[in-house]
Design a binder for these strands. Sequence first.
DNA 1: TACCCAAATGTGAACGTACACATTTCGCCG
DNA 2: CGGCGAAATGTGTACGTTCACATTTGGGTA
Lengths: 341, 341
Amino acid sequence: MNTESSPPRAPNIRDVAREAGVSYQTVSRVLNDSPNLRPETRERVLQVIDELGYRPNQAARTLVTSKSNVIGVLVATRAAAYGVQTILYAIEDAARDAGYRIAIATCPSDEKSVREALDQLIGQAAEAVVVVAPQARVFDLLAATPLNVPFVLLDSARRDLGHTVAVDQFEGARLATRHLIELGHTQVIHIAGPQDWIEAEARMQGYLREVSDAELMVRPPVLGDWTAEFGYRAGRELLNRADFTAVFCSNDLTALGLLHAFRESGIRVPADVSVVGFDDIPEAAHYWPPLTTIRQDFNEVGRRALALLLAELGSGDDPITELIRPQLVLRSSTGAPGSGV
Amino acid sequence: MNTESSPPRAPNIRDVAREAGVSYQTVSRVLNDSPNLRPETRERVLQVIDELGYRPNQAARTLVTSKSNVIGVLVATRAAAYGVQTILYAIEDAARDAGYRIAIATCPSDEKSVREALDQLIGQAAEAVVVVAPQARVFDLLAATPLNVPFVLLDSARRDLGHTVAVDQFEGARLATRHLIELGHTQVIHIAGPQDWIEAEARMQGYLREVSDAELMVRPPVLGDWTAEFGYRAGRELLNRADFTAVFCSNDLTALGLLHAFRESGIRVPADVSVVGFDDIPEAAHYWPPLTTIRQDFNEVGRRALALLLAELGSGDDPITELIRPQLVLRSSTGAPGSGV
DNA sequence: TACCCAAATGTGAACGTACACATTTCGCCG
DNA sequence: CGGCGAAATGTGTACGTTCACATTTGGGTA
């Protein structure tokens, strides 16, 4: 049917060379901005490239140079959208500034998927890898899979595996809990995140430590899944327990659901019950009441992760752990103890 | 320093072959699950692969096969986190079911960046590309850049460029506006999204059409940026204009900010003013009051996009446009007209 | 005008893999 | 026990690029 008898092969460097009347090496020089080229030669080649719609074959380039200008990001989670998203953007910006692009491979957190995603990144000759994998088990898999490129872990449970950048979740949870205690609350409940999440575990530990340091009664945290919907259901259940005047939620979304449940039942926040969240997502300032919460500087996490990689600390040095301090953001959802539920 | 004098080259297929006492082709067969292999041979090769930590070089594979089992996703936006995120997950799941992985390239929406990101995807020999680029100008760039692989555009302004999958934003905006009008509102204001966004424009058009069809007075929409913060500021400004009893916000976050501003000023929703959002993000059900909004099925968008690609409709057929119907979700933020602001 | 050096351009090889095809091995039947 | 065919394994080549080195070109100087 086609008047062209040849197969629809993409043009390569030699096609361009032939068309422009130069050698393929000259074309290569044009592509790589070699200085020693007559301007008119460069011009002609560029024109042919445009005419033919030629695009360098990245696979061939990568094969021969084993360089790709790509930094891989392994994302082994779906939840925590805001934090992950923000970190990704920060990484992307920092990478761009340094002349790199980023390739994101997302995957479920089972062994096979993580391995495949890693292969995908390494296969693109990613020169460094950032691992965003907030679930503990992923790090055990990683321990068994040498990477051969510099890498940084975010929020790792295994500080021995490699360089780690993280917001100090434990400290953040202590800040939140201490704030409530300092307001005079003696009955503080914690709604935790999924227990296989490193951050959830650390936040719970921070809460427990602070409560026991204050010699208050520790009560078993409610285990949740970090959604607003769960917060709402948890809130409704809590209505049956009149044993608290403050709640520390492991993230802002859960707090939102909780606020909903309380409001629906006529429990006033903070007059009757105080609520603290975690993350300080942009919406938290507009919840009702505006939410007191713990701010995590996700941008800083992304930036530092990339800085570590670019400093080529991938050498055999001992793993570095950078902890970023969280910050208490005071709004209107907390106050002195009231009547409770 | 190193007792090993050889350079730290990654092992290749020939290293494995030598170590296992077979030819490199046999190793290749093991890697590609060839049927004609003695089980013990396969076993031995696999063991050597494990010992050496060998990983197939994806670049070489791609170079020779020009296949990659990768579907590229170009994401040229940062806002609209929830929608984009959900679509990405749906694409990823559908891709995995079909035996593909996805590679995500994010970029700013300027010409150079988009082109680079495309090159990055094509360079990985992506066999198909999904373009998530809600800003109009990106599509003009795309029109000038032939892709040579099947591709699908999401929310495209240019239906002529290729297959398009989108939620019918125009219809969604009409649903929202009509709902308010049917409740008896005659003074409906629209808070729009950024005007270079295709969806924002379509929603505004839907609003304008519905209002003029009802022969109500059209008033100039407020132009915003889709954040809760903007919604809050817009809400405070609206307090000076006592010329409306209902507001249609172009997304849920803006609506949240608006609710905040109104509540702060003692304006009751929906008693005094009704508010409708757009998107139905999971939190919308827990806002106060729970938000009446327009649901977009982002999962469906992702699924259909991939289905289109997998059906290899990339052939020269006329571009297909698949419109997904949005849906009105009634909650508590709307009611019969009240006193207004 | 011959010569030399730098600038400009060209040639051969290699990267690691998969495909097509060639060769060897092996069990089984006549 | 020879031979035959299928199963198992090996050899040559191509993919598209960059690097190292070789060669040509050109302008200025002795």
